[in-house]
Simulated scan of single mutants.
Amino acid sequence: MSLNNSVKQDRILVVDDVYDNLILLETVLQEDNYEIILAQDSKSALAIVEQSPPDIVLLDIMMPELDGYEFTRRIRQNQNLPYIPILLITAHIYSSVVEGLDAGADDFIRKPFDPDELNARVRSLLRLKHTIDERDHMASLREDFVSRFTHDLRTPLAAANRVLKLMREGMFCSVTPEFAQIINTMIGSNQDLLEMVNTLLEVYRHEAGSKHLKFFPFDIRELVREVTQELKPLAEEKNLDLKVELGEKLDLEPESANMVMGDRIELRRVLTNIIGNAIKFTATGYIDVSLSLDANNVLIKIQDTGPGISQQDQAFLFERFRPGKHTGSGSGLGLYLSRCIIESHQGAINVESEPGHGSTFTISLPK
């Protein structure tokens, strides 16, 4: 079997309400090896696009029912369709290039056109289509690889921790205090690696656009209280004072007071990460978590008495794979993921810090 037989033909949908124009375009395009689909009715053409997306659409602007501009807008508004280049064709000198491009078209050509120019524009748009398809395919492969890779890592890590915990409890042999400490260290290291693997998977889901947030109203005060209570033992182990100021309840109707529209699980992940980091990197002093909100906005501040962060490091703190310079800094993905989650909620996260004077992370969210 020859390699040429396995090469996919590019499918071109040509839409024009004048039959003679369709035949002319078909004749011009037949110079290359394309599969050409002709449609004289714009509504039936739109159905073709939705059922079996072509690789490119050549579209007359002036058509009854759906003109070229509206046809283009409907394609671009359909989130279920892949990227399809659209070349608008018109015989009217007053047709608006601006309106066509704003509607989502990729190129524009006027009749009478030069056949060589038309073919060149089609080839150019098909190259763009192939490049974008290849990029999307690689992104899909990357996400699939990361998903499989992280799953394959999580399973043995979780199993190893179960065995280690049984060992610590003396299920297999007697355990001395020194041996128990070694086991605890191993469990902690496994847990850190497991969290890193989970964070890596979440980062790639966000970057690939496959992370779907679930927005529901929830009590933000209750979430902050829940996270700080869960992390309080970690602060107490280091003799740190974890302070929580939830502010006054708003004088609003009961169903709207202190409620935020968002993905509670993902915002919980952010708070756990930021407050956990504050505890991790603070040797002495306190961590102060404060919540303030009004009718439209939520402001959460996490202040610590840790070593602080230089202005140079602050500039890259929320970038991917940019770990801090503190001892024990992780992969640099936690803060990047937190930024992705907050920005997905149309909010913002930033830091104010000075070396030797602690740090204050501020999370702002719309209600």
Rank of each mutant, 00 (worst) to 15 (best):
L128V: 09
R268S: 14
L29P: 09
V175W: 07
D67I: 00
R168L: 10
P307M: 02
L166S: 14
G285T: 05
T199P: 02
H130E: 07
V298I: 10
P323L: 03
N119H: 09
H206P: 03
S174K: 14
A39C: 14
S292L: 04
M167P: 06
D107I: 00
S95R: 01
G170M: 03
I109P: 12
V49K: 06
Q40F: 02
G324P: 06
D136M: 02
I23F: 09
F108Y: 09
G324V: 04
I302C: 07
G276Y: 02
V298K: 09
H137T: 07
L166E: 14
V163R: 11
I12D: 13
H212Q: 12
S42G: 05
G104W: 01
A159M: 06
G308I: 03
L337E: 10
E266C: 05
V97A: 14
T185K: 10
E207D: 10
T131L: 08
S210K: 12
H357N: 15
I109F: 04
Y336R: 09
R148M: 02
R121N: 09
V289G: 03
V18C: 07
P156I: 00
Y286A: 03
L157Q: 15
I342G: 10
L88W: 00
L88F: 00
G330Y: 04
G306Y: 03
H151I: 01
F145D: 06
G324H: 03
N4E: 13
I309Q: 09
I302Y: 03
G334M: 04
I349G: 15
A235V: 00
L201S: 11
H137F: 05
F145C: 07
I84V: 14
D60R: 01
G209W: 00
L153C: 15
A348H: 11
S359Y: 01
E195Y: 02
N5Y: 04
F321C: 12
I349V: 12
I48H: 09
R127G: 06
L365Y: 11
N161F: 00
L200V: 06
T362I: 06
L125V: 02
L252T: 07
L29G: 12
A105G: 11
Y69H: 01
I309A: 12
L153N: 14
F216G: 14
S256E: 11
M167K: 13
V28N: 12
L201G: 12
N184V: 01
K214G: 08
L240F: 03
T327M: 05
S2I: 05
L194P: 05
R264Q: 14
F316M: 13
D114K: 11
T90K: 04
S140Q: 08
L46D: 01
D136W: 01
L246H: 08
L293K: 14
V146F: 06
M196S: 15
R148Q: 09
V57Y: 03
S359F: 02
S329H: 09
C340L: 13
D60K: 00
R123P: 07
S338I: 01
L194D: 07
R205L: 04
L3C: 10
L81Y: 14
L125G: 05
I341R: 08
F281L: 11
H151V: 01
F318N: 13
F316V: 15
A160Q: 12
S329D: 12
G104Q: 02
L337I: 05
H206Q: 11
N277K: 08
L231F: 03
